[in-house]
Measured scan of single mutants.
Amino acid sequence: SIVTKIISIVQERQNMDDGAPVKTRDIADAAGLSIYQVRLYLEQLHDVGVLEKVNAGKGVPGLWRLL
């Protein structure tokens, strides 16, 4: 499923980069989806406690990390 793919992308990127959070844009590119589509999935995963959003604010790139 797309959700499983997104989780594995975040996991893979974090492992490659010493646990650093992953940008929404990088996840979207790797999943082959638009940034808006991916954001909806990321928000859902956040709501159920799978991911945390590391930063927030208007015009700030979203950074995500697995919990």
Rank of each mutant, 00 (worst) to 15 (best):
residue 7 I to D: 00
residue 36 Y to N: 11
residue 45 L to M: 06
residue 43 E to P: 01
residue 13 R to N: 02
residue 7 I to H: 02
residue 14 Q to K: 03
residue 16 M to S: 09
residue 10 V to L: 14
residue 4 T to M: 13
residue 7 I to R: 02
residue 65 R to P: 02
residue 34 S to L: 05
residue 1 S to P: 07
residue 11 Q to V: 09
residue 15 N to M: 13
residue 7 I to V: 07
residue 26 D to R: 03
residue 20 A to R: 13
residue 44 Q to D: 08
residue 64 W to A: 02
residue 45 L to T: 01
residue 63 L to W: 09
residue 43 E to V: 05
residue 19 G to F: 05
residue 24 T to Y: 01
residue 45 L to Y: 00
residue 58 K to I: 09
residue 51 L to F: 04
residue 55 N to K: 08
residue 59 G to L: 05
residue 59 G to R: 06
residue 35 I to Q: 05
residue 46 H to P: 06
residue 44 Q to G: 07
residue 15 N to Q: 10
residue 34 S to W: 04
residue 55 N to S: 12
residue 59 G to A: 06
residue 29 D to I: 12
residue 26 D to A: 08
residue 31 A to S: 08
residue 65 R to V: 11
residue 21 P to M: 05
residue 39 R to Q: 12
residue 3 V to A: 08
residue 25 R to G: 08
residue 31 A to Q: 01
residue 40 L to Q: 10
residue 8 S to C: 15
residue 32 G to K: 06
residue 57 G to F: 05
residue 7 I to C: 05
residue 21 P to Y: 09
residue 48 V to C: 15
residue 5 K to M: 12
residue 37 Q to P: 01
residue 22 V to E: 01
residue 56 A to C: 14
residue 11 Q to L: 11
residue 63 L to I: 04
residue 66 L to V: 11
residue 55 N to Y: 13
residue 66 L to K: 02
residue 45 L to S: 00
residue 6 I to P: 00
residue 38 V to L: 04
residue 13 R to Y: 12
residue 62 G to C: 15
residue 15 N to L: 14
residue 18 D to L: 11
residue 63 L to C: 08
residue 21 P to F: 08
residue 18 D to T: 07
residue 12 E to I: 11
residue 33 L to C: 04
residue 27 I to P: 00
residue 18 D to V: 07
residue 31 A to E: 01
residue 17 D to R: 14
residue 8 S to I: 09
residue 39 R to N: 12
residue 3 V to L: 14
residue 25 R to C: 07
residue 37 Q to D: 08
residue 9 I to S: 04
residue 57 G to Y: 06
residue 62 G to N: 15
residue 31 A to C: 12
residue 49 G to M: 02
residue 19 G to P: 04
residue 14 Q to A: 08
residue 5 K to A: 07
residue 36 Y to S: 13
residue 55 N to P: 09
residue 28 A to T: 01
residue 15 N to R: 11
residue 47 D to S: 14
residue 59 G to Y: 05
residue 11 Q to F: 10
residue 17 D to W: 14
residue 41 Y to L: 10
residue 9 I to H: 03
residue 30 A to Q: 07
residue 10 V to C: 05
residue 62 G to D: 15
residue 19 G to M: 06
residue 31 A to Y: 02
residue 51 L to I: 08
residue 34 S to D: 09
residue 29 D to W: 08
residue 50 V to L: 09
residue 58 K to A: 12
residue 61 P to S: 14
residue 32 G to N: 08
residue 6 I to C: 03
residue 14 Q to G: 05
residue 5 K to G: 03
residue 41 Y to F: 09
residue 39 R to I: 14
residue 33 L to D: 04
residue 51 L to T: 01
residue 59 G to Q: 06
residue 61 P to Y: 14
residue 31 A to T: 08
residue 36 Y to H: 12
residue 60 V to M: 14
residue 48 V to L: 14
residue 20 A to H: 11
residue 17 D to M: 15
residue 14 Q to P: 02
residue 40 L to E: 08
residue 21 P to V: 06
residue 52 E to A: 06
residue 59 G to T: 07
residue 58 K to L: 10
residue 55 N to D: 11
residue 1 S to D: 13
residue 8 S to F: 12
residue 29 D to H: 11
residue 48 V to F: 14
residue 51 L to P: 04
residue 47 D to K: 15
residue 15 N to A: 14
residue 48 V to S: 11
residue 48 V to W: 15
residue 45 L to G: 15
residue 1 S to I: 10
residue 30 A to N: 04
residue 33 L to S: 02
residue 50 V to H: 03
residue 32 G to T: 02
residue 20 A to S: 08
residue 19 G to I: 03
residue 67 L to A: 15
residue 29 D to E: 12
residue 63 L to D: 09
residue 48 V to A: 14
residue 11 Q to H: 11
residue 13 R to G: 03
residue 4 T to G: 10
residue 16 M to L: 10
residue 46 H to N: 07
residue 31 A to P: 01
residue 67 L to S: 13
residue 41 Y to C: 07
residue 22 V to G: 00
residue 64 W to Q: 01
residue 40 L to V: 12
residue 41 Y to N: 00
residue 32 G to P: 00
residue 33 L to E: 02
residue 30 A to W: 05
residue 44 Q to A: 14
residue 38 V to H: 00
residue 62 G to A: 15
residue 47 D to A: 15
residue 61 P to T: 13
residue 21 P to G: 15
residue 21 P to H: 05
residue 57 G to A: 07
residue 47 D to Y: 12
residue 49 G to L: 03
residue 1 S to N: 09
residue 45 L to A: 01
residue 17 D to H: 15
residue 31 A to N: 01
residue 29 D to Q: 13
residue 36 Y to I: 11
residue 11 Q to T: 09
residue 28 A to M: 03
residue 20 A to V: 06
residue 63 L to R: 11
residue 6 I to R: 00
residue 39 R to K: 13
residue 4 T to W: 14
residue 60 V to A: 14
residue 47 D to L: 13
residue 17 D to N: 15
residue 41 Y to P: 00
residue 41 Y to Q: 02
residue 58 K to D: 13
residue 9 I to A: 07
residue 9 I to T: 03
residue 7 I to M: 07
residue 50 V to W: 05
residue 16 M to P: 03
residue 38 V to K: 00
residue 57 G to K: 08
residue 59 G to C: 08
residue 67 L to C: 14
residue 55 N to A: 10
residue 15 N to F: 11
residue 66 L to T: 07
residue 14 Q to I: 04
residue 22 V to S: 05
residue 37 Q to S: 07
residue 51 L to C: 02
residue 18 D to R: 11
residue 9 I to D: 00
residue 42 L to E: 00
residue 11 Q to E: 09
residue 14 Q to V: 05
residue 44 Q to P: 02
residue 56 A to Q: 10
residue 61 P to E: 15
residue 29 D to A: 12
residue 20 A to Y: 10
residue 23 K to S: 15
residue 66 L to F: 10
residue 49 G to P: 06
residue 50 V to D: 06
residue 15 N to W: 11
residue 33 L to T: 03
residue 54 V to Q: 02
residue 23 K to I: 03
residue 30 A to S: 07
residue 30 A to P: 01
residue 35 I to Y: 09
residue 59 G to S: 09
residue 37 Q to A: 10
residue 64 W to M: 00
residue 14 Q to M: 14
residue 22 V to T: 04
residue 16 M to E: 06
residue 61 P to R: 10
residue 60 V to I: 10
residue 37 Q to V: 13
residue 63 L to V: 04
residue 63 L to T: 08
residue 38 V to C: 14
residue 31 A to H: 01
residue 58 K to Q: 11
residue 27 I to Y: 13
residue 31 A to R: 01
residue 35 I to H: 05
residue 1 S to R: 12
residue 29 D to N: 11
residue 42 L to S: 00
residue 4 T to H: 13
residue 11 Q to A: 13
residue 50 V to Y: 05
residue 58 K to W: 03
residue 2 I to D: 04
residue 46 H to W: 12
residue 7 I to F: 05
residue 56 A to S: 10
residue 11 Q to G: 07
residue 58 K to P: 13
residue 5 K to Q: 09
residue 46 H to A: 15
residue 36 Y to A: 13
residue 5 K to L: 14
residue 38 V to W: 01
residue 56 A to I: 10
residue 20 A to M: 09
residue 55 N to E: 08
residue 8 S to R: 14
residue 5 K to V: 07
residue 46 H to L: 11
residue 15 N to H: 10
residue 46 H to G: 04
residue 33 L to P: 00
residue 25 R to S: 13
residue 24 T to D: 12
residue 29 D to Y: 11
residue 42 L to I: 01
residue 4 T to C: 15
residue 37 Q to G: 04
residue 34 S to I: 05
residue 1 S to L: 10
residue 60 V to S: 14
residue 2 I to Q: 04
residue 35 I to V: 11
residue 37 Q to T: 11
residue 2 I to S: 03
residue 36 Y to E: 14
residue 36 Y to Q: 13
residue 54 V to K: 02
residue 36 Y to G: 11
residue 50 V to C: 09
residue 60 V to R: 12
residue 7 I to W: 04
residue 60 V to W: 15
residue 22 V to L: 04
residue 53 K to V: 04
residue 2 I to V: 08
residue 23 K to W: 05
residue 56 A to L: 09
residue 51 L to A: 01
residue 4 T to E: 12
residue 56 A to D: 12
residue 15 N to E: 12
residue 51 L to H: 00
residue 27 I to R: 01
residue 58 K to N: 13
residue 32 G to H: 06
residue 66 L to P: 03
